[in-house]
Every structure is written in structure tokens, then in C-alpha cells.
């Protein structure tokens, strides 16, 4: 349980990070909170030639208001999301999701950028960022580009980042007024990876009519699964029947895998139940009935 030897770099600026990534041509691995990478190193499942430790790049650790939205630096610690007023007021969905991430010891160091770049299919933040329609900024010595969260996750542990790119920040657009939220998860033990995770956002106008609905599932496929439920919910009062129909779609479209933790059949069942509960809570919290 000891890593293989590696070269260690501790840059203090984003420019240095870019230069190190470029000079190592894919052999350099970014170390942020280390809560996913270091287990892989310890078990020698990952054997990078060089580790680029970004923990001293102060320019990556920030949480800025952006109009009614928010921009999170890659090095934003997960625990800090639970202690920030702007996050609590603007993105309660994010707070609910982060509470499911591991334990305090993990959230103290685990970062927003690290979780997204690692792209574990059962992790909470990828699901949440897709639901929030976030935009990820990747930067390198060649420049910066924005990638919608929906297009960022390509496969298990695989993202749209190029080998020389750093996940620099995440931009969260403002949510429409009257948007209700819910994040639910089932795991074997508190803090474990999700067997199934569900993020739901529902927007209602003053009359209670649904004007937008988003449902994203985690743990049921290689990447966060967007379930298209707008046709079933938009333009009407989101009744229990309509919600149940939307949840059935979630159960039907996913193709979960069986593993030692749960069978595919069980995951499908849990997905349907959690989707119904999350949509119900989001509907209750949404604008119309306040």
C-alpha cells in the first residue's frame, strides 16, 4: 500500500501549472485534495511519473458571486460549500449533495475541481453540476475554453479534459426564481459512494404551473444520466401522477450495472423511488405554493 516513486512539483501559480502539464505531456497528474487520487496511488492503480500539487495555488481557491450565479475555483474545498452563505442561499441543491460526500475528513481536503476531473460515476458533484447546468473552464498554456457540464463527462473516470489542461473553475448560472430542489442518495453506509443518487430541480410560476424540470441520476451508468422529463411536467400543475410518470421514465431509461454492492434490478427500483421522492420534494419547494 505504498505508491511507486514519483517526481513532485508544487507550483504556486496557474501559469506554472500549465507549464508543468505541458512539459510532462500527459505523464503529469494534478493532485488537489487527494481523496480519490491518493488511494489510487497507494494501491498502485495509478503510477504517474510526476505529481503536480496545486494545493498552494491560492488563485484556484475562491468562491465568487457572479451576478445571481457563482463561480467556484477548482480548489474550493467541499466542506467550504457547507459553510458559505451565498451557496446556501443560491444553490441549496449543492448543499444537500455535498452533505452526502464521504465524511468531514474527506470534505476538508476534497475539492470541487478534483471530484469533477476524477469523474467517478457514483460521485455527487458531477450529478449536481450537470443538474445545475454548470460550465467548466479548462485552461492550459494554449488558452482557456468553456465546456458545459453535460458534455464534460465522457465515460467512467474519463472527461473532456486534454492531457495538458487544468480544470480551473466551474461557473454556476443563476437558477430561475421559484425553483425547488432535492438531492437524494442511497448507499450501503453513510458516506459511501452512491448506489443511486438523484438530483431534481423544478421551477413553477406563480400559479403553480411547472415551467422547467431537470432530473439527473448518478451511480446508474458511466456518466451522470440526464432524464428528459420536461414533456411530462412542463405546462401543467405537477400532480403526483405526473411525477410518478416522470419517475417511471427514469427507471426505464437507465441501464445500471450489477456489482457486489447491488444488482441492476435493485438499482433500477431505487432510481425510480428516489426520482419520485426528489421530484415531489422539489415540486413542494418550488415557487407556486409559497
Amino acid at each position: 500500500m505504498k505508491p511507486v516513486a514519483f517526481d513532485y512539483y508544487r507550483p504556486t501559480s496557474v501559469e506554472e501549472v500549465h507549464a508543468l502539464l505541458a512539459s510532462h505531456g500527459g505523464g503529469g497528474k494534478i493532485l488537489a485534495g487527494g481523496q480519490s487520487l491518493v488511494p489510487l496511488l497507494n494501491m498502485r492503480l495509478a503510477r504517474p511519473a510526476a505529481i503536480i500539487d496545486i494545493n498552494r495555488v491560492a488563485a484556484l481557491e475562491y468562491l465568487h458571486a457572479n451576478g445571481d450565479g457563482l463561480v467556484l475555483g477548482a480548489l474550493t474545498r467541499q466542506q467550504s460549500l457547507l459553510e458559505n452563505r451565498a451557496v446556501a442561499e443560491r444553490y441549496p441543491l449543492l448543499v444537500e449533495a455535498v452533505r452526502y460526500i464521504g465524511h468531514r475528513q474527506i470534505r476538508n481536503w476534497g475539492t470541487v475541481g478534483g471530484s469533477l476531473a476524477h469523474a467517478d460515476p457514483a460521485a455527487e458533484l458531477p450529478v449536481t453540476m450537470v443538474a445545475l447546468d454548470a460550465e467548466i473552464t479548462a485552461s492550459s498554456a494554449r488558452g482557456a475554453r468553456a465546456i458545459p457540464a453535460r458534455e464534460f463527462f465522457l465515460d467512467t473516470l474519463t472527461t473532456a479534459l486534454e492531457p495538458d489542461e487544468l480544470l480551473a473553475s466551474v461557473r454556476l448560472p443563476a437558477l430561475s426564481p421559484g425553483t425547488g430542489w432535492s438531492f437524494l442518495e442511497v448507499s450501503r453506509r453513510h458516506g459511501d459512494f452512491a448506489l443511486v443518487a438523484v438530483a431534481a430541480l423544478v421551477t413553477r410560476d406563480e400559479a403553480g404551473v411547472c415551467t422547467d424540470a431537470r432530473l439527473v441520476l448518478g451511480g446508474v451508468g458511466p456518466v451522470p444520466q440526464v432524464v428528459e422529463v420536461r414533456d411530462l411536467l412542463i405546462g401543467q400543475q405537477p400532480t403526483p401522477d405526473a411525477i410518478a410518470a416522470a419517475a417511471d421514465v427514469a427507471g426505464a431509461v437507465i441501464e445500471p450495472a450489477s456489482d457486489v454492492h447491488a444488482t441492476a434490478e435493485y438499482r433500477r427500483h431505487v432510481a425510480r423511488v428516489l426520482a419520485r421522492r426528489a421530484l415531489t420534494t422539489a415540486v413542494e419547494r418550488a415557487g407556486g405554493r409559497r
Binding site: 513532485y8 487527494g34 481523496q35 491518493v38 468531514r104 475528513q105 481536503w109
Partner: peptide
């Protein structure tokens, strides 16, 4: 801050 010392390198 509580920290898993197996997941941090001494150099960090």
C-alpha cells in the same frame, strides 16, 4: 482540520 494522514504526503 481533520485529515486522513494516509491520503496526504508528508511533503504536502
Amino acid at each position: 482540520k481533520s485529515t486522513r494522514s494516509c491520503l496526504m504526503f508528508a511533503v504536502q
